[in-house]
Design a protein around this nucleic acid. Structure first.
Lengths: 342, 342
DNA sequence: CAACTCTTCCAAAGCGCTTTGGATAATTTC
DNA sequence: GAAATTATCCAAAGCGCTTTGGAAGAGTTG
């Protein structure tokens, strides 16, 4: 069943039926209702290809598949992607994946996607501190939006969480509790978010006249093993250097840290304090830890949903100001934090 | 730059240029070379939408996004998806994600994808023992392929690994080593693959005249916690019931089991044996365990790559026999298995 | 009642490709 | 050398939608 058949059936022109179905104002509500009913009855569904050709819009958003695989990274990405796909479907968009691995360079991928008009816009996640993709997409005139921020010469739209503020809050909670030696287990240093978190952390320390100590700050993968390894290293420091509190960038890391602490018989919230950032994954919750974890939390799935909305709004009004949305991050205090021991 | 402009530039008809570029035989190699060169020079890229409209093919494959989120499941899916996207791109196809969550029923999603001709075919992963999606897609006449198998009334193409054989081999290794009480930590019972694994396991036991004991067989999520919980339960059994070997369905489970064993001071391969299935994720390897793990192994990423090839072949020759490919699974013996103690 | 303005609908022109059904020129066959 | 064959190429017709530029009828206005 296509438009022509449907309009013949209705005794109307294709124009009118098309307009009726697409909600244009210049058609009476009566004919609109008739058209809708007939479309429903005969299971009419406009051909995506024809519509794309006619409008020049593909009705498809591209999400860039991260180059590297790694455990937590993948989990976060899946959750984010799930949010994107879900919301996109609700808004009538498809989501396709763009990957730049193997033979193709990233640029070639974007060029191809762009020139063959496969996607209307792209979503970039995990931006680096300086991310070349921003200038590239800008040059190619491909609409896009960032999940996160980046230092960039050209303007870009983004949705980000307040990583700086989150880690400031978390570190401030610890300094207010009297902690003086606080360790930061960060994500990889090349990512913007890790940089922002470190800055928030340092700001809180500086406010109390403390300086972050280099041996207490470590970037790395957001996996359990990194948490374990760093926890072992930190606990083996001489007492004068050993941290009394640890701030983790992910629950996975915190999990590794916590298991080491348990092995050493250290009680969370008493002998040592622990805070982590919680992305609200479906399957891993700060509150479900053996000792419920104090955490900064923000749903990465919700971010996926929202970023799709922002991108689509941007596509519909390309000349409107670029979206710049920063979500505040809550600090939820649970049992894993307590006053510093004298 | 579109076809018409390009053909004008070349002084050829659109027909000829189109045929030249698409490798049809009725055009001389000389003009083909010229057309290719001009296309390259001017950065001509055929419009996906126009091609779709003209051919009725979308050049897009749909991958069904699993309904539930769970940690290892997500990791496996991401790895599989990565393989799909990568290979699809190499073959000139896009991959879009179909999700059946929230308001839309799964059927509505497929119907929509089908009628608006958004995808040429779909890839289903994690099939249930009896999976209604098979009949549904068959009825809708949507081409599809399964990653895994299922009991179904209608025919379907698939790529699967020999789960039955893999777990038979693994269990046989253990019985040959003299183990008599072997536990199986399986995936969730509703999935076909879990069923197949259990059958292989039981077959190996039966060959030695052993019956699987119900208290030693447990299905569940493929996460570390399930491994830990079950390990604790098993080790607390009275000696006469306690297993001397454990067979896990995933490295995550094995990881949980292994940590419990370590806490109890049991040495892998001496006091107790452990085998797991290893999907060859990027970030988690059986050989990297503290005691390298004996494992059945098969790359789920490679399966993603292959299933895309199979689906595309099927789309090109819909009347050819449906693909039915089963990969043998290697059993790699490492240090975590040893003879049963007398 | 003529002159306007809305409202409602339509015919037809694309969008950029593929493909059918020739046409023309070059080559071979008898 | 005429007829048949083959190798190249082309004009034009879709594919199914959106959208432009009216047209016809209904309602308003002076």
């Amino acid at each position: 069943m296509n438009l022509r058949e449907l309009s013949k059936l209705l005794g109307l022109s294709q124009t009118t039926v098309s307009r009726a179905l697409n909600g244009f104002p210049e058609v009476s509500e009566e004919t609109r209702a008739k058209a809708r009913a007939a479309a429903e009855l005969h299971g009419y569904r406009p051909s995506a290809a024809a519509r794309r050709l006619a409008t020049g819009q593909s009705g498809t958003l591209g999400v860039v598949f991260p180059r590297e695989r790694n455990m937590l990274g993948d989990l976060l990405f899946t959750e984010f992607l799930g949010g994107c796909v879900e919301r996109a479907a609700e808004l009538g968009y498809d989501v396709t994946l763009a990957m730049a691995r193997g033979a193709q360079t990233e640029e070639a991928v974007y060029r191809r996607a762009l020139r063959s008009a496969r996607v209307d816009g792209m979503i970039l996640s995990s931006p680096l501190i300086e991310d070349p993709r921003i200038d590239l997409l800008r040059t190619l005139k491909m609409p896009f939006i960032l999940h996160g921020r980046s230092r960039a010469t050209s303007a870009y739209g983004y949705l980000d969480i307040d990583n700086e503020g989150a880690f400031y809050k978390a570190a401030k909670l610890l300094t207010d509790l009297g902690h003086r030696r606080i360790a930061l287990l960060n994500g990889e240093a090349r990512y913007y978010f890790a940089n922002a978190r470190e800055q928030g952390f340092r700001r809180a320390l500086a406010e109390k006249g403390l300086a972050a100590q280099d041996h207490l700050v470590a970037g790395g993968l957001m996996i359990e093993k990194h948490g374990r390894d760093e926890a072992l290293r930190l606990l083996d420091l001489a007492p004068a250097f050993r941290p009394s509190a640890i701030l983790c960038s992910s629950l996975s890391q915190a999990n590794g840290v916590q298991s080491v602490l348990a092995e050493r018989g250290l009680r969370l919230g008493h002998d040592i304090s622990l805070i982590a950032h919680d992305d609200r994954l479906q399957d891993m919750h700060a509150e479900s830890f053996a000792t419920p974890l104090t955490a900064t939390q923000s749903s990465i799935g919700a971010a996926g949903r929202r970023i799709v909305e922002l991108l689509i709004e941007h596509l519909r009004a390309p000349d409107a100001p670029l979206p710049e949305e920063v979500w505040p991050v809550d600090l939820v205090v649970r049992a894993s934090t307590g006053p510093a021991l004298p």
